[in-house]
């Protein structure tokens, strides 16, 4: 074995280890401790759906995460989101083990309730999906009430409907990765990000333009920043045990 082979081998191994180390340094897992108190209501799926539809109000935010890899895939398939199994497996693990964990093991997706059992959110484009038994079967979720006037809520719903109609907001992996990285390392740095290239949480910041959820521009709004913002309060949540309402 030549000396060059040895040098190249150790250099390549060092580079590989450096990449792994940097990934864990920038996207190290964090834990969130919930301080809010909740009261258990039910674990019956039908009751959970009825209670959700009864308690959710127009303008409320719905944060969700898949129960499992298969559950998430089933939900997306039933909502006509076309991802093949291999791509879904890849994204699920990147999201679960890296992206979401680096901000705190919390919710993945966020949307606004626009009435008529519909949630409007940004995924591949702006899309609307229904609150039905699929949501209860395949996802855990939390509903947040925004502390703002009714006029602002009406305005946000109007904007959400317009964006759905025009499809003028894009989902951007680039901006998503940057804001997750900034949240993960706790940086206050602001990048110049386009206002029509967003992720689900910054899309909520766009339609609720009048509200400042944190000290960063809405383009830098992450699901964690929204969930723990002072401008929102939790109404109820559905987790692995059942339906819980805030005390």
């Amino acid at each position: 074995m030549s000396k060059l082979d040895n040098i190249l081998f150790y250099a390549s191994m060092s580079f590989l280890l450096l990449c792994i180390f940097l990934t864990f340094l920038f996207f190290g897992p964090k834990k969130i401790i919930e301080k809010e108190e909740f009261v258990f209501v039910t674990s019956d799926k039908k009751e959970m759906l009825n209670l959700t539809l009864e308690l959710i109000e127009e303008g409320d935010l719905l944060l969700s995460r898949p129960k499992s890899l298969i559950g998430g895939y089933e939900y997306d398939t039933k909502n006509r989101i076309n991802l093949n199994q291999l791509t879904y497996f890849f994204w699920y693990n990147i999201f679960d083990k890296l992206i979401i964990n680096s901000m705190g093991n919390t919710y993945w997706h966020i949307g606004i309730y626009i009435g008529q059992e519909k949630i409007n959110s940004l995924y591949q484009g702006v899309y609307e999906h229904e609150i039905n038994e699929n949501l209860i079967n395949y996802k855990y979720f939390k509903v947040l009430k925004i502390k703002t006037s009714e006029e602002n809520k009406i305005l946000a719903i109007k904007r959400a409907k317009e964006h759905f109609k025009k499809q003028d907001v894009y989902y951007s992996n680039k901006n998503g990765l940057i804001i997750v990285y900034l949240e993960s390392i706790g940086s206050k740095r602001i990048y110049s990000l386009k206002e029509n290239e967003l992720v689900c949480s910054s899309y909520i910041g766009l339609i609720y333009n009048e509200i400042k959820f944190n000290d960063k521009p809405f383009t830098h709004l992450t699901p964690v920043a929204l969930e723990f913002s002072e401008k929102v309060e939790t109404k109820f949540l559905v987790n692995e045990t059942g339906f819980f309402i805030k005390k």
């Binding site: 990934t23 920038f26 992996n173 680039k174 901006n175 990765l177 110049s192 990000l193």
Partner: peptide, 13 residues
């Protein structure tokens, strides 16, 4: 700069 930083982050992942 935003593109380059995200390229770097995606690369190390």
């Amino acid at each position: 700069s935003a593109f380059l930083i995200s390229l770097f982050l995606m690369f190390i992942i």
